[in-house]
Design a binder for these strands. Sequence first.
RNA 1: GCCCCGUUCGUCUAGUGGCCUAGGACACCUCCCUUUCACGGAGGCGACAGGGGUUCGACUCCCCUACGGGGUACCA
Length: 488
Amino acid sequence: MTRPVRVRIAPSPTGNLHVGTARAALFNYLFARHHNGSFILRVEDTDKARSLPEYEQNIYDGLRALGLQWDEGPDVGGDYGPYRQSERSEHYTNAAMALLKAGLAYYTDDTDAELEAQRNAAKAAGKPYVYRQHREATNGSLRFRIPTPYTTLVLNDAVRGHVSFDTELLGDFVILKSDGCPTYNFANVVDDSAMAISHVIRGEDHISNTPRQLLMYDALRAIGYSDAPTPEFAHASMILAPDRSKLSKRFGATAVADYMTQGYLPEAFCNFLALLGWSPPDGNEFGTLEELAKKFTLDRISKSPAIFETDKLNFFNKHYIKELNTDTLYERVSPYIDLMALGMEYTPEQQALLLEAIREPLVTLTDVTEATPYFFGQDVEIPEALKADVLNTPDAATVLHAFANQWPTWDKTSPDTIGAELKALMKSLKPLKPKNIMWPIRTATTGRTSGADLATTLYLLDTGLLGNNRVAHRVQQALAHCPMTSTT
RNA sequence: GCCCCGUUCGUCUAGUGGCCUAGGACACCUCCCUUUCACGGAGGCGACAGGGGUUCGACUCCCCUACGGGGUACCA
């Protein structure tokens, strides 16, 4: 209880950093920070066949992108290393041999076919499959013997309360595969003991593993291999896809990296993730990692599964984009915009103005791709539908002619002066509604009916380094799509 | 099949026997503001899975059913 808080995230590099893993990491991180403890990254690469270095790298990148920096780990070191299970084999062999010597584990040499047959037999008999030693062996895989007499194990979970398990239903499980590699249930416990992990915060999918691990902690202590107390456990519920199924590729993006490339801000993603299965005591849903850590406690983790819906993620992303200062916005948006063209067409001041003008409706960073094209080049493409609906009307002709005539005389020193001129124009065209004046002008100059503030847009188009009187040019071109009649 | 967990508005959730005519957020709808769109402001729609108990009183406690999820691997 009083021992230092040490928590860990223990991903296996068999895939890119998954949303579920990221949330587990986040909860552990928040808990560690809340208690001034340590957050450890341990790579569980015992599945040689499926573990890949690029996945490990992806996990590092994803965690770091989210701001979840670990205090100890394979790449940063620490007092309890190494932090990659493939480099800790002697720990597992030593522990396993000690268990074997103490009679708590034994070798089995069943073939895959035999195991399969045993399972099928149990199934046919309608009985639960429970592996028990049925013959002596001197090599093969090493199994842990479930201690007798069988009892009922009670796990006191920090989020679920008391959960009990009947050990009779637990089969003797493999701790060392026949290739000498440890299995998850074993390596996990050996390492958590060795690394003095105080709290295990993980997904509900691990709850069925817990009784085996509980037994293993006891056994390791019983044989004097370890004196580490069993950690506290907290099992958070799963994150599900909208159809309540497991979050899988079928759902779309399941990797954190995918969300980053889709233009989600790390701070937005973290904030959103934190609220999936946890709720702040004060009801304030916004918060930086630091702020959330201050409020984070295990007892507010939810027991029921949460569905991953992007609506709220989008909301958070909009919110955090709004809060970015111009420089950061420029930086964040740079992967999605043609910086070269931007630099060639606009001065730094104009670039800032442009970014501010388009920031409002951005949901994801990638949206800049859609929001900026009309700021570049001489001409603008106007969709056929808009030519027909907006430009091909007598009102549009009136507006655009009036605008074309006045434009050369306008005070174009700033967006504000242009705004004032626009206002005056609207007044002079009085019976016409603002909307019917704004739309044709916007459509003619940008090829859209919505977008950045019109006055700012006109200002930028007019003063951009390209010069060439783009506004007048585009309006002239648009006029071609207006009815010829009212040439006032 | 067996074991474990869960079930409050469409979604994330608050709620630990009376404060609940069930609160908030997102989404959606309406109105207002407005130089279009957006933003912002004000409203609206909308839930305790079902059935039995226990209790003076159940969203809250117990049991059953249904549904969902997890596990049942020499994957983690």
